[in-house]
Design a binder for these strands. Structure first.
Lengths: 341, 341
DNA sequence: CAGTATGACTAAACCGGTCTAGCGAAGGGG
DNA sequence: CCCCTTCGCTAGACCGGTTTAGTCATACTG
């Protein structure tokens, strides 16, 4: 038999379709004995639910969506997304839910996908990343009334619940670490100012530097290796150049490392380099990068669990705090002017 | 009105559901005038097909699957998949088809996903990557009778059609390039020997070296930065160490670069380094890596188009050749012993 | 002009589940 | 002992499309 349906099971078990549906979904309406028998028959016949049939009838689509807006041909998935993806899928798969991933060109296209997938009933909910300052996606998702979890925060994402890590606290710890090493002039190679987390990190650098009496400057970039390199070149060419650089991403930090090597600036002897984002990339370059480490896989799991809970009960929208990233010291940082390093 | 259905359109246009279905799908059965009117009404009401309803009734699921088997926490580093994904999606989206991506732990789990998604009608077809030597996934997909496109080849994938690039030709061009620079002792840091492309590349290195009278050795690794680094360390510690290294992946090449720096071996002065895989990563490290460049985005598009054609007409299974990767020379290669570099 | 082919369209079955209304039997309360 | 509730289950509507069988009017054929 090709693909048994619940009608086949019902016939074989001598019950009705309804009884089979109840039994297979673990809901009341059948006795324990009958349920047992039905499950055994379903197992024997190797029955699998037809996802489309289930999605019809107003039930779940069994899928949640993740849409990334970035130019298609630029760098592939950053390690962050690979990890996040795996974490999301790990948690979702325990509940038979799939993750639909789509990469689009820009935010407008992203919003269009939200509308389409919602009206086509393709997904039950969304995961939102890269929260922007006055994020246009938030009101759209609220209007669509579709469950969604935001990664990032706190605050500024309307009524949508979020999972967030304390970027401010993390950045402060970075600045304090550099200050403790003896650095007095630091620079921060930030990401796109349109992102909320970029703004938060810039503010944290400013506040931390002020408190510790450091000179600090933040330079916004577009997160690309090209701009990271260009900004680094400009900084190192200054007469009183900084003795430590904080990069918002591992890719930019690696690009910066390349510029330092090219300009003959020794790392960490003459320049300390720190990445706000840890990854395999940060480990394999030479010198290995001191970086903020966070468990992105676990973050993904947490987000997925929260979204599943939200699907079960739309009332449970609450913000959840993720552990603050911890500093992993490697070879790219030292006291300023330490010629032995 | 929440979500109009074809019944709503039918009522408004004063025709039957069937007529609407015919009109919206561009098939005969309605006059041009009626079709026009129905389309206008559908547009006015902002109608969108309900993907589940369509998938029921034996029609398309409107989705194809890509399942990657690799340890959950390691993915994301390779730019290859990001590019491939974007290319696949670009071509698929022109036909309203979505891509379902899943990362699983191993090949056994991957096969289980093929079975499940097929029996659940979740996808219409699959894209298969990382072809292995006696790949157990091939017979399963053949048995399931589900359309699938293989990336890799040529040969050794049963009746499944593939899109392939000439790895052998590419590797030979690499070896010839190094020989022309004057290298006589080269080593090849290969990937997992279980992969067909790894075997092909190893054979190409051996054949090329024999023809050109070089000493060559291939060392298999697991593609990880750790093994890449370890193998590099072992090679450079040999008394008569090679003057050029070919890495099967950019990640390993970067790790190797780190080892060389650590051991005080100048690149490219004392050692030339080449990566078989180009990427942003290869560009941003210092020195920038000479690498084989291929248009992975275009590859993805090509695969997607071939798969869509296969869905339309299961008879059209043909292997397609992708352009051979071209060498991009950067800073990591020079003549052996060139102290000016 | 009868007979038939063709085109436009309708009605209804169908895909494979979910879910509600309802029914008979058993159990419990007063 | 009767009524009412609860339990276990069935029948069938329903989700939103696709597809087939069939109807009717018109055009074509000989």
């Amino acid at each position: 038999m090709a693909r048994p349906t619940i009608a086949d099971i019902a016939r074989r078990a001598g019950v009705s379709k309804g009884a089979v549906s109840f039994a297979l979904n673990g809901r009341p309406g059948v006795s324990a004995a009958t349920r047992e028998r039905i499950l055994r028959v379903a197992e024997e016949m190797n029955w699998r639910p037809h996802s489309a049939a289930r999605a019809l009838g107003g039930a779940r689509a069994g899928t949640v969506g993740l849409v990334l807006a970035r130019p298609a041909r630029t760098i592939g998935l950053e390690p962050f997304f690979g990890q996040l993806l795996s974490g999301l899928q790990a948690a979702l798969s325990t509940r038979g839910t799939a993750l639909q991933l789509l990469v689009v060109e820009d935010t407008a296209a992203e919003i269009e996908v939200y509308r389409r997938w919602t009206s086509e009933h393709r997904v039950d909910g969304f995961v939102l990343v890269d929260l922007q300052v006055r994020d246009p996606r938030v009101p759209v998702l609220e209007e669509l009334g579709v469950p969604a979890m935001v990664i990032g925060g706190p605050g500024r994402h309307g009524r949508l619940p979020s999972v967030w890590a304390d970027d401010r606290e993390a950045m402060l710890s970075l600045v304090e670490y550099l200050a403790a090493l003896g650095h007095r002039r630091i620079a921060h190679l930030a990401g796109l100012p349109a992102f909320q987390h970029t703004r938060r990190r810039i503010r944290a650098v400013r506040d931390g530097a002020r408190r510790l009496g450091l000179e600090a400057v933040s330079l916004p970039t577009d997160f690309s290796d090209a701009e990271g390199a260009a900004a680094t070149r400009a900084l190192l060419a200054r007469p009183r150049r900084p003795t430590a650089l904080i990069y918002d991403s591992d890719v930019m930090a690696v690009a910066g490392l390349g510029v330092a090597a090219e300009m003959g600036v020794a790392v960490p002897g003459e320049l300390s380099v720190v990445s706000f984002e840890d990854s395999a990339l940060a480990r394999i370059v030479h010198p290995a990068l001191t970086a903020l480490t966070r468990d992105t896989f676990a973050l993904g799991e947490q987000v997925a669990r929260a979204l599943l809970a939200l699907l079960d009960d739309p009332g449970t929208a609450r913000d959840i705090k993720n552990p603050t990233p911890r500093l992993t010291v490697r070879e790219s940082t030292a006291a300023p002017g330490d010629r032995t390093a």
